[in-house]
Design a protein around this nucleic acid. Structure first.
Lengths: 288, 288
DNA sequence: CGGCCTCTTGACGCGCTTCAATAATAGTGG
DNA sequence: CCACTATTATTGAAGCGCGTCAAGAGGCCG
């Protein structure tokens, strides 16, 4: 039904990236995505491309031809509506999948911009309309990943819709720290790769509020702040800020009329509720 | 790799639904989902179940076993965070896919509640971990549908993050009207199946603001309002309200440094930007 | 150095939440 | 049938969080 095929020549693209091509095997790709590799080959099938800082890897309106997996670097995903308003949707990093918004209608609606120099792996699709039963078990990975992205967006929606500015910022910082940790860096000291504008757009607030919120946290000793360099001094303080968030109080009308009748898993977010607040993949994809 | 299988007995479920079972063929399912049926069989493979008003079709924490397609009725999708705050994520109706949040980690995070009596078709998955190359070409449909849901959430995020209360409400009403229209009802006169609380949660505002916004629209002659019955008198007025929305002004810093180098499709949302504001599927799924 | 950008800080006002009270509706039982 | 209560919706008044406007500080680069 499908056909994941290597397009031998993408040379007709005048896209600003595409230079210095190396290759990546299916096994390597699965490893990168955090999936238990099983029977995948070691043949280098997937093209690796470099992106320069500030460049758009994907543009809105562009026809969908390939997905990307981030190997290194930082990105931002931006949606621009018809009136020219920009909304930052996320800050993808290593091991995250880019371009999934194009799967639905074979056209991208979001722009993906590199915040730093970056490396990505291309996952091309033949544009014949059908895509399915991809080789190497990537199809299940794909579906599950998109589903996770969906859940992440929903979490972000909850945050913007019901929490105050400082709580949102606390969740943002904790989420960034967690992502940094997953990439092998410190979870409490890192460099924000994006400007205040992007943070504000992502969190649904103006840059003045971003600034005030951050300096407020610094003044109260929760964090240390120099430019975009952040050191989290009191993670628990941020956690509390995040949890008490909904001072914009919830109208809880729990109707606990019926008990759980289905087997259920313990509520996943018990330990780190802000998991995935910054971007889709909170952890590697493992088979249950 | 996959295995979409009919689970012969779901009798061990004590779930409140499950009674009065009829059946639905793969072809019928594809038709319902808006996909061009090709070679699908007419054998009734998919179970149809009824849901009573107020019942939960899916609960948070429940293990993922099946997806559902709405045949009739109205639902709401609710996410509840660890502090008990509820966020309404959407109002699915006929032809929409439910339960996709469970694909990622084989556990649902959202609750799906019927707002009215409703009928749904079950799409069961064997829980062996792998799901892929489903029969009847449902796999591509699935992926594209989830991608569309993703785009929808992003649109909702943009609306809540950057627009004012009345603009959000205008977009909501227009979106509801469009869904009603797609279902064969009037797009300008309909009954809101949800209470003010649910609307407010979905739009990120308090119920008092919902009430004030609606009565304000009624007073200015944009709509007529009796209870949950709405008649849109001036669709263009609502459209303008929606478009001028970002009085919470955008910080547009367009850096149009590079020109479009890729083939692009005309910006989809030129005609009805609020498409899909209320729920995922703005139209049937067709091959490009 | 000077221009340009990002970020900060202050003062003010508006939009929405919050609190509180009332009204309209539906469901229940006598 | 009407009283009775619970739920849902409306309306008003007051407060504040955050957007808005304006000015200034700090960093980057030619």
């Amino acid at each position: 039904m499908v056909s994941l095929a290597i397009q031998p020549s993408l040379a007709n693209r005048t896209s600003p990236r595409s230079r210095g091509a190396s290759w990546c095997s299916a096994k390597g790709l699965n490893t990168l995505l955090g999936v238990d590799a099983t029977e995948e080959s070691d043949l280098p099938l997937f093209r690796c491309v470099q992106v320069r800082s500030g460049q758009s890897l994907i543009r809105a309106g562009q026809v969908f031809t390939t997905l990307f997996v981030v190997k290194a670097g930082f990105f931002k995903t931006v949606f621009t509506d018809e009136t020219g308003n920009e909304q930052v949707l996320g800050f993808p990093v290593k091991s995250e999948l880019l371009g999934t918004d194009g799967l639905g209608d074979h056209a991208h609606v979001n722009e993906v911009v590199a915040l730093t120099a970056a490396d990505v792996v291309e996952i091309p699709f033949t544009c014949l309309g059908t895509l399915a039963s991809m080789q190497a078990g990537l199809d299940e990975t794909l579906l599950r990943t998109v589903s996770r992205q969906l859940v992440h967006e929903q979490l972000a929606l909850t945050m913007i819709g019901a929490m105050r500015a400082d709580s949102r910022m606390a969740g943002f910082l904790l989420g960034i720290g967690q992502k940094m940790n997953a990439m092998g860096y410190s979870s409490v000291e890192f460099n924000l790769q994006m400007n205040r504008q992007a943070i504000g757009s992502y969190l649904g607030m103006k840059i003045e509020t971003v600034s005030r919120t951050l300096t407020g946290m610094a003044r109260s000793g929760l964090i240390e702040l120099h430019q975009r360099q952040v050191r989290i001094l009191k993670p628990d303080g941020l956690r509390e800020l995040y949890r008490q968030g909904p001072l914009k109080k919830s109208n809880i009308t729990r109707d606990d009329s019926a008990a759980q009748t289905q087997p259920s898993v313990p509520h996943q977010s018990a330990q780190t509720p802000w998991s995935g607040l910054v971007t889709g993949l909170s952890g590697p994809l493992r088979r249950p």
